[in-house]
Simulated assay, not measured.
Amino acid sequence: MASNRNRSYKNPKHVTRRHAAIGKIHIGKQQLGMDDDTYRAMLLAIGGVKSAKDLTPEGISKVVQHLERAGATFTTPKRAGRRPHSIGSASERAAQLRKIEALLADAGRPYEYVASMAKHMYKKDALEFCDGRELAGIIAGLMKNAKREGREVR
């Protein structure tokens, strides 16, 4: 099988995906408790190489599938969401955003929760598009929800 060592990946997205997939292989190795000799033997048998960095995209896919069949589980962590970037730190909206963040943290909810509130309440695609009055409405909604669920509102 040809080595990937000479192939140069130019597209940053491809490089990122490749690194993530190779990381996935190493996570599977750790989950299954493989020693180095067993791991290298598996790479040689499944992917035809001695090192994960030499795997082709097809080889990576085969190795990941093999690890999954062997019992490795790959789950993506639940992300907190994307914090709005367009709200300056000195504005009134920034203070409102900090209050929203505090209410979300107390409730254990991600940013997507308030993004869906903005869409439902004000037909806005993102929190960044809400003005001060609309952010106040979202805060009021979060506070009502906190009271309804028995959380202390500060």
Rank of each mutant, 00 (worst) to 15 (best):
M1E: 01
S3Y: 05
S3A: 13
N4Y: 01
R5V: 01
R5C: 11
N6F: 09
K10D: 02
N11V: 00
P12S: 02
P12T: 02
K13V: 03
K13Y: 00
H14K: 11
T16V: 06
T16F: 01
T16R: 06
H19R: 12
A20T: 09
A21K: 01
G23R: 14
K24G: 11
Q31G: 04
Q31I: 04
L32N: 02
G33R: 13
M34L: 15
D35C: 07
D35M: 04
D36N: 06
D37C: 06
T38M: 07
Y39I: 04
Y39N: 06
Y39M: 04
R40V: 01
R40A: 09
M42C: 06
M42E: 09
M42G: 01
L44G: 07
A45G: 12
I46W: 01
K53M: 03
D54F: 02
D54P: 00
P57H: 11
G59E: 09
I60T: 11
S61L: 08
V63G: 03
V64S: 04
Q65S: 15
E68I: 15
E68V: 03
R69E: 13
R69D: 15
A70T: 03
A70V: 00
A72W: 00
A72K: 11
A72T: 03
F74Y: 06
T75D: 08
T76C: 07
K78T: 14
R79W: 05
A80R: 12
A80N: 15
A80F: 07
G81I: 05
G81W: 03
G81Y: 09
R83P: 00
R83K: 13
H85A: 13
I87M: 10
S89Q: 12
A90L: 12
E92T: 13
R93W: 10
R93E: 13
Q96L: 11
L97K: 14
I100C: 12
E101Q: 14
A102R: 12
L104H: 10
L104W: 07
A105P: 04
A107Q: 13
R109A: 10
R109Y: 11
P110W: 10
P110S: 15
Y113I: 01
A115C: 09
A115R: 14
S116Y: 11
S116R: 14
S116T: 12
H120G: 10
K123H: 06
K123R: 11
K123I: 01
D125R: 14
D125P: 07
A126I: 04
A126H: 02
L127K: 02
L127N: 08
E128Y: 10
F129V: 03
C130Y: 06
R133N: 10
A136F: 04
G137T: 04
I138M: 09
I138A: 02
I139A: 09
I139T: 05
G141A: 15
L142M: 11
M143Q: 14
K144V: 05
N145L: 15
A146M: 12
E149N: 10
R151V: 01
R154T: 10
R154E: 08
R154S: 12
